[in-house]
Amino acid sequence: MSSIPVRSPETLAQLRRRIAALEAPEGQENHAVLPFGVAEIDGVLPWGGLPLGALHEIAATGGLDDGAALGFTALLLGRLACRQDKPVLWVGDRDDLYAPGLASLGLPSSRLLMARPGRGLHPHWAMEEGARCRALAGVVGEVWDLDGTAARRLQIAARASGVPVLALNRGAGNAVALTRWRIAGAPSAFPDDEGGGCRWSVTLSYCRGRGVTDDGIVSSWLVEWSDETHRLRLAAVPGDRTAPPKGRRAAG
């Protein structure tokens, strides 16, 4: 090993590329990615989008009824299913997913396969079976905890088959997944804005190959889903929305 001048920016960039190449889903010829279609988000991800053939975690901090995390997951799944024209497998925890709502986020019911393990059966097994099956465009599992072993198995299965696995995780995360997202609902602009798209605050809390900022996250955006164009876009900066409700409440 030759000694490396640490301060040189080219060397640093070179090293980053080498590390990214090492940490990327190796053993794959096609480094397929799913771009978000939002330049700001895709620019932060080292792969230029969400890499397929990997495990991604979406933290559902609001428990079962976290609509924002669920919506973000459905949106990603819908894009995966429509791009590849293959079905997706949803390993659910309850029976109350509502197909019309999923369809409005771009996940058509004809592409959706539901599997609901009964009591005492772990969803990991079904997720892993799905991750091995190349006839699927993606797998999502609602899990209560994702321990390191299960996550590693899912990651290996996804890497071998190229089928992305999304874990809608209600428990603590771990560093096996390539990315971890935290989605929260954000006050939308629908009373005065036509269209009525929903807004989310999307936080990329971990991304392999990217350092975290002082807040402990990689980056955060406020995005808006448009029902008309079926696309994500960055929302306008909020700030003018915090005052009016308070005023209204005082009046009511």
């Binding site: 009824d65 919506g71 997913l97 509502y98 197909a99 709502g101 369809a103 409005s104 004809s110 029902d227």
Partner: peptide, 20 residues
């Protein structure tokens, strides 16, 4: 699940929730 994939269902145009 094994039934042949049908054409996309027609859902109401009004917004519908993700969980019911």
């Amino acid at each position: 699940a094994a039934s042949p994939a049908s054409a996309d269902a027609r859902w109401p145009a009004a917004p519908r929730p993700l969980r019911l």
